[in-house]
């Protein structure tokens, strides 16, 4: 049951990323490139995705538990830490450079050719390096 739900969710996610045009790196870079030929598509994708998700989060309050058992995720942490800010800045820089983020990089893997494969491999390598940087950020003075 859990696996079927994951597969369905993944398939919908892949379909959404592809149909919305988010596997086209020029659309992503176009959104980020405010001083170039600005492309608002990404805002519609984000907005479109947030609407059903907001309803889903609402439903978690009345449904008590997920359909396949287990528990709903806990309430989000309110604190902002260095990890969140530094990580997001690094991610954003890379996102702008190639126009790819994790979801679309997988969704476009079948037709992205060698560049797409190289990006995903580098991303996986980066993910393996992340724990080291995380630990380092924690060791230095914690932000009050």
């Amino acid at each position: 049951m859990n696996l079927l739900i994951s597969l369905l969710s993944g398939a919908l996610f892949g379909a959404g990323l592809y149909i919305s045009g988010m596997t086209d790196t020029t659309k992503v870079q176009g959104w980020l490139d405010v001083f170039g030929n600005w492309d608002p598509t990404l805002a519609f994708v984000m907005g479109g995705a947030i609407i059903p998700m907001a309803v889903a989060w609402r439903l978690t309050r009345t449904l008590r538990r997920p359909a396949a058992g287990g528990r709903f995720p806990p309430a989000p942490m309110p604190e902002i830490d260095r990890r969140l800010v530094i990580g997001s800045v690094l991610f954003g820089a890379g996102w702008g450079l190639a126009g790819l983020c994790p979801g679309p990089s997988i969704a476009s893997l079948s037709f992205g050719g060698l560049p797409g494969i190289v990006f995903v491999a580098a991303m996986a390598a980066g993910m393996m390096m992340a724990p080291t940087l995380k630990a380092r950020l924690d060791r230095t003075v914690p932000a009050e």
């Binding site: 988010m22 994708v45 479109g48 995705a49 889903a56 359909a67 396949a68 287990g70």
Partner: peptide, 17 residues
Amino acid sequence: GGLLIGLAGTVLLLGNG
């Protein structure tokens, strides 16, 4: 496409938590 992405998130959240 965005609505589909949101639906994907909905399925995973309400299905698997």
